[in-house]
Simulated scan of single mutants.
Amino acid sequence: MIVGIGVDLVDIARFERTLERTPRLLERLFSPAERELKPRSLAARYAAKEALIKALGGSDGVHWTEIEVTPEASGRPWFTLTGSTSAAVVERGITTLHLSMSHDAGFATAYVIAESETAR
């Protein structure tokens, strides 16, 4: 059963300017592995993390660096959650997260669906 949906859209150029003005955002928003990526990929991951928070219904117990977007061998993006963020997802009864991301024409977008085995 779907228990949450989240979507986010990021202007890549604006996001890149924000990172240039505030370099510490990289450490606050992204895992060490993600920090090595190009700005368009970081913008898509930022959108994914925002969409996840929306699908969860809020940010209680969620920490940005505990959410990592990791690609499967096929390239399909997937969330790798750790710490209190992983616990928050479990506490909400969420058993499956679906993620889709894209970037084109200066924008990055992400869509997340959260599923539970039972209605809450």
Rank of each mutant, 00 (worst) to 15 (best):
E36C: 06
L81D: 00
Y46S: 08
W64C: 15
E91Q: 09
R76M: 15
E34L: 08
P23S: 02
A73V: 13
T80R: 13
R14F: 03
T18P: 04
S31L: 06
L52E: 10
R35V: 08
A33S: 11
A13V: 15
L56Q: 03
F15E: 04
L19C: 03
E91L: 03
T22E: 06
H63F: 04
Y46W: 09
L52K: 02
T82P: 02
A43L: 06
R40Y: 11
W64I: 11
T70G: 12
A13I: 14
L25P: 06
R40T: 02
K49E: 15
P71R: 13
L25M: 08
E36A: 12
A88R: 01
E20D: 05
R76Q: 07
I67L: 07
R45C: 12
A48S: 15
D8P: 11
G61E: 02
S86C: 03
S84K: 06
P23E: 01
R92T: 01
L52F: 10
S74N: 01
T85Q: 00
E20C: 05
L9T: 04
L26W: 11
D60H: 07
T18I: 05
A43Y: 05
T65Q: 14
A73I: 13
A88N: 05
L81M: 00
R21A: 11
G61M: 00
E27I: 04
A44V: 04
E66T: 01
W78S: 08
L29C: 05
G57M: 00
W64A: 11
T65C: 12
V69A: 06
K54E: 05
I67Q: 11
R35N: 09
A33Q: 09
E50M: 03
A55Q: 00
A88D: 02
E27V: 04
F15T: 03
T18M: 12
R92C: 03
E91W: 06
E36R: 14
R92N: 03
P77E: 10
P32I: 04
D11K: 10
R21N: 05
L81S: 00
R76Y: 12
A44R: 15
R35L: 11
T70I: 14
R35E: 11
R40D: 02
S86A: 09
A55W: 00
S74V: 01
E66L: 01
L52W: 04
A13W: 09
G75W: 04
K38L: 10
G75N: 10
Y46C: 11
L52H: 13
A48Y: 08
D60A: 14
I12Q: 06
R35C: 08
G83Y: 09
A88S: 02
G83S: 07
A88T: 02
L56Y: 02
L26R: 08
Y46P: 14
R21D: 14
K38P: 14
E68K: 08
F30R: 15
F30P: 07
E68G: 06
R17Q: 09
S41R: 13
L26D: 15
S31C: 12
E91P: 10
F79G: 05
E20V: 12
L9C: 04
A47C: 11
R17L: 14
A73H: 07
W78G: 10
R45T: 14
A55K: 01
W64N: 12
T65N: 14
A33W: 09
P23N: 02
L9I: 04
